[in-house]
Amino acid sequence: MFTALFLFVSVTSISQSAVLQYDSRIINGEDVAPGEIPYQVSLQTQNFFHFCGGSILSEYYVITAAHCVAEKRLADMIIVAGTVSLIRSGVKRAIKQIISHKEYDPYNSYINDIALLKLLAPLKPSRDIGFVTLPKQDEIIQQGTAARVSGFGRISESSSGSNFLLKATVYITDQEYCKNIYNKILEYIYDTHICANDPNISRGSCKGDSGGPLIVNETLVGLVSWANGCSLTDYPTVHTRVSSYIDWIKKNAV
């Protein structure tokens, strides 16, 4: 089942019939305390339906997955910051501009899955709102490093989304293992991907968590992008490797 977190849906015929389902949620996660992950945002429709996650880069910019905002109209979306509950109102901001990576292709959304959202009005730092830290360009994260993923996504493949922000600990996967396991189902892993999961228990992102942060030592190392299934122990979740795009981010988030 492919989850683009959007989630990969079960496939009857592997590869060509595999369908990206962008929208994931945290499985086997824990509640996030107010202010614990102050850069986490919820991307929502104008009628307040959560569909993706993101992280606050600065007062005017949010970073997310390009597949979350591809072919969407500015007037149809808002971001909600400063809350760990979709039931309680957070700080809402309209979006002024969508800046997807120039080499992102919605028909090949597995790669260059990164976008910036320029906000119409600034987000002011507070206890509940803060800015995420970026890695250095091409910084390498070692295999086995503990990471944290968070989001408002599904708590199981068959459930509805969570109204509360959840977090889970996963581990950076060996890149060669990730390449080899996905090669079995004819999917390609690029150097601009970073994979993570828990090899012992189903834990991590699912449908609705797309675009949300993968964090190592309070640094944004990945954006939830896609996977075969939801938080499987054998197939890691694939994230956009943020360190591959630092120069692009700095050039465009101005």
Rank of each mutant, 00 (worst) to 15 (best):
M1G: 13
F2E: 12
T3A: 09
L5V: 13
L5H: 02
L5D: 13
L7I: 09
F8E: 05
V9F: 13
T12M: 03
S13G: 14
I14R: 08
I14A: 08
S17A: 12
A18E: 15
L20G: 06
Q21K: 13
Q21I: 15
R25H: 13
R25P: 00
R25V: 09
R25S: 15
I26W: 06
N28E: 04
P34F: 08
E36W: 14
I37N: 02
Q40V: 12
Q46S: 05
N47C: 07
F48T: 04
F51G: 02
G53F: 10
G53H: 06
S58E: 03
Y61S: 00
T64G: 03
A65G: 05
A70D: 14
A75T: 12
A75Q: 10
M77S: 03
V80F: 08
T83W: 14
S85G: 07
L86I: 03
K92C: 12
R93D: 10
R93E: 05
R93L: 11
R93S: 10
A94R: 15
I99C: 03
H101R: 04
K102W: 14
E103I: 12
P106M: 02
I111W: 06
N112I: 11
D113K: 00
I114Y: 04
K118A: 07
P122T: 04
L123M: 06
K124C: 05
K124Y: 14
I129Y: 15
L134V: 04
P135E: 00
Q143S: 15
T145H: 04
T145K: 07
T145F: 05
A146E: 13
S150A: 15
S150K: 06
G153Q: 01
S158F: 12
S159M: 11
S160M: 08
L166Y: 12
T169V: 14
T169M: 07
Y171T: 03
T173Q: 03
T173D: 10
D174E: 08
Q175H: 15
E176R: 12
Y177A: 05
Y177P: 07
N180Y: 11
Y182F: 11
N183C: 08
K184A: 03
Y190H: 14
T192H: 07
C195H: 09
N197Q: 13
N200T: 15
S202H: 15
S202E: 15
G204S: 14
G204L: 10
C206V: 09
C206A: 15
S210D: 11
S210A: 13
G212D: 02
G212Y: 10
G212H: 07
P213Y: 10
V216L: 07
L220G: 08
L220W: 12
G222I: 07
G222N: 10
L223V: 11
L223D: 01
V224S: 01
S225Y: 08
S225F: 04
A227C: 11
N228Y: 11
N228K: 03
D234T: 14
Y235T: 04
P236K: 00
T237L: 03
V238T: 03
V242A: 00
V242I: 04
S243W: 10
S244V: 01
Y245G: 00
I249F: 03
N252M: 11
